[in-house]
Design a protein around this nucleic acid. Structure first.
Length: 217
DNA sequence: CCAAAGATGCGCT
DNA sequence: GCGCATCTTTGGG
């Protein structure tokens, strides 16, 4: 399990999103290594209407314009979201879902950090099945992390997993906001831990609404 | 200061 | 799949 260098992030957001799926998020916290494998990522660009950066350059959005590898976090509907800036000012990738990639006390800590609303533990495949869920399970708070570079206590690492991917459209984009762009990538081996399984959507047609792509090099 | 809108999550059908 | 809770940020008055 090797941490990637900051130069890893120096590529266009679309390429970066594709390269991040299958990689590991490694969070060092309280003497434990909380590890999650990225299952789903979406690219966002400045010259496209769904991105926060397209709304203008403000202090809170500044990390989207910062050097590749800079963490950008924001809150939406009550929950935090984890992003990383890519090559190209205003371009970034949103970490959308992940799966557990550790065991023992680290796994237990992640469950304790992100219980269901009732307090009961979530099933493993659902523990990180959302952009806010993965932040909670990794104890990532917006104020603490936005603007900082990846590395140290929050790193991206590589264990050689090069999964086949599914490419499809991004989620939650209102009509007229470039909602048709196929800038979302999902780990084909973990469709049950994605926010939504693109192959199971009603009326979805392979080749038109989603398709397989090979992993990035 | 307040209203409104989110790159959501959850429970129910 | 759909409605609703949720709550911070943002921008207008």
């Amino acid at each position: 399990m090797q941490p990637v260098p900051l130069s890893f992030f120096e590529r266009p957001a679309l390429d970066l999103a594709r390269a991040l799926v299958g990689r590991l998020l490694v969070r060092r916290r309280a003497g434990l290594l909380l590890v999650a494998r990225v299952v789903e990522a979406e690219a966002y660009a400045r010259h496209e209407k769904a991105s926060h950066s397209s709304l203008g350059r403000t202090p809170s959005r500044e990390p989207m314009f910062a050097a590749p590898g800079t963490i950008y976090m924001y809150r939406s509907r009550g929950g935090p979201s984890l992003n990383v800036s890519a090559h190209g000012a205003g371009d970034a990738v949103l970490f959308k879902s992940a799966v557990l990639a550790c065991d023992g006390p680290a796994r237990a800590a992640m469950h304790a950090l992100n219980p269901s609303r009732s307090g009961a533990p979530r099933p493993d495949p659902k523990l990180l099945a959302g952009q806010s869920l993965l932040c909670r399970a990794l104890d990532l708070e917006t104020a603490a992390w936005t603007g900082r570079p990846f590395g140290g206590d929050l790193a991206v690492a590589d264990d050689g997993d090069r999964p086949r991917l599914i490419q499809t459209t991004r989620l939650g984009i209102p009509a007229g906001r470039d909602e048709h762009l196929p800038w979302r990538f999902v780990h084909a081996g973990h469709l049950g831990s994605a926010t939504k399984d693109p192959t199971r959507r009603r009326g979805a047609v392979e080749g038109r609404d989603w398709w397989f792509v090979e992993p990035a090099g």
